[in-house]
């Protein structure tokens, strides 16, 4: 049947199936599944100000996930978004450090550009190794996350350590309020506008440029594109750079926005969740918006779970893990199953 409808229904089917499977596991573990889902729904979308709290996580997830989607679409499984996110925040914080006292109108955009550059460079070296020497990008980008994590530890506990801090977690100094683009809620007009800007740019890039069409072809059949004179290496490097840029932008927004500083090991699952967000949306930009909202909601609900249900926050990890499993299974089973059902309505 219609591909476009399939793109919408498929993620919904995943989420529904994951909910059912989770419910069964919760019940077996002795928790009320109904109560559990009620509080997730409340915590994520229905409760007072819960939508705003969900957006706090959904907005950066969307930005990073658009980049991840562009890279995956091109056939490069860049799973280094977490590290690129960290490098983005580190580069941005150095800009604020060296330009302290300069007008915020200059510092904030420069910081974001630095963040994007940092993310892009951090994505570029695994990309180069992949394209020049054929090194598996899954391994290099995964490893690059750990290196970036350690660089973050170094920066926050070394050169830029906030000496006045309580010392619980190493971090940089909190930014002065004029350098902040949102308060701790993480939702402000600036951040929403940036996110919309990323969404529109990403959509145009995917749907209205030669890069979008060629990268989709490269992801589906690079051999065919080679016989058309296509330069896979250009597409690959570009998609690595773009995904790194967007993850880095997320990192700098986190600094100027909700966190207000760079903390050792902050948002440790951001990049990985962004991969799930992109996969559930099948790399479509509009779908990514909804999927980011869903995962943002889950994340925000997770913080309330222990209060209302006695379940640990990691219950949400179970949810994420089941969705990841379903996505993996889909590649061989799900699509064929759905497609056959739809193309043979008489069965």
């Amino acid at each position: 049947m219609n591909e476009k409808i399939e793109i919408i229904i498929r993620p919904l089917a995943f989420i529904l199936l994951a909910t059912i499977l989770c419910g069964i596991i919760f019940e077996i573990a002795g928790f009320s599944a109904i109560l559990m889902f009620n509080s997730i729904l409340d915590g994520a979308f229905l409760g007072s100000r819960s939508l705003e709290k969900s957006l706090r996580w959904a907005l950066p997830l969307f930005i990073t996930a658009v980049g991840v989607g562009i890279s995956f679409r091109c056939g490069f499984f860049n799973i280094g978004a977490q590290g690129q996110f960290y490098m983005g925040s580190v580069c941005a914080v150095y800009v604020t450090e060296y330009m302290s006292g300069v007008n915020a109108v200059i510092v904030i955009p420069l910081g974001m550009i630095a963040g994007m550059t940092g993310g892009a460079l951090w994505s570029l070296w695994p990309g180069y190794l992949k394209i020049r020497y054929g090194v598996d990008e899954v391994i290099t980008t995964l490893m690059s996350n750990f290196i970036a994590g350690l660089i973050l530890v170094y920066v926050t506990s070394g050169p830029l350590k906030d000496q006045s801090g309580s010392g619980q977690q190493a971090s940089t100094k909190i930014l002065p309020s004029e350098l902040r683009i949102s308060d701790a809620s993480g939702v402000s007009l600036t951040i929403i506008l940036i996110t919309i800007g990323v969404g529109i740019t990403g959509w145009l890039l995917v749907n209205r440029t030669s890069f979008g069409t060629l990268s989709s072809l490269a992801g589906r059949n690079p051999t065919m594109l080679k016989y058309q004179g296509g330069k896979i290496w250009q597409l690959g490097l570009a998609s690595f750079i773009i995904s790194g840029m967007l993850a880095g932008l997320s990192g700098s927004i986190e600094l100027f926005g909700p966190s207000g500083r760079v903390v050792s090991g902050f948002l440790p699952t951001h990049g990985f969740t962004a991969i799930l967000v992109a996969l559930v949306a099948s790399y479509a930009v509009i779908g990514t918006a909804f999927s980011a909202l869903f995962f943002g909601g889950l994340f925000s609900a997770a913080l309330f779970l222990p209060i209302f249900t006695g379940l640990p926050t990691s219950a949400i990890d179970l949810f994420n893990a089941i969705i990841a499993l379903l996505i993996t299974a889909r590649i061989t089973l799900g699509t064929n199953f759905l497609r056959n059902r739809w193309s043979h309505p008489h069965d």
């Binding site: 890069f211 058309q228 296509g230």
Partner: peptide
């Protein structure tokens, strides 16, 4: 051909492949 890609994408591939990487279409 890229069998899982749409027909028009296959058809236009050669034209796009020889032009600059990012171009409005």
């Amino acid at each position: 051909l890229s069998l899982t890609s749409e027909l028009w994408e296959n058809w236009v591939a050669s034209e796009l492949a020889v032009t600059p990487l990012i171009r409005w279409i």
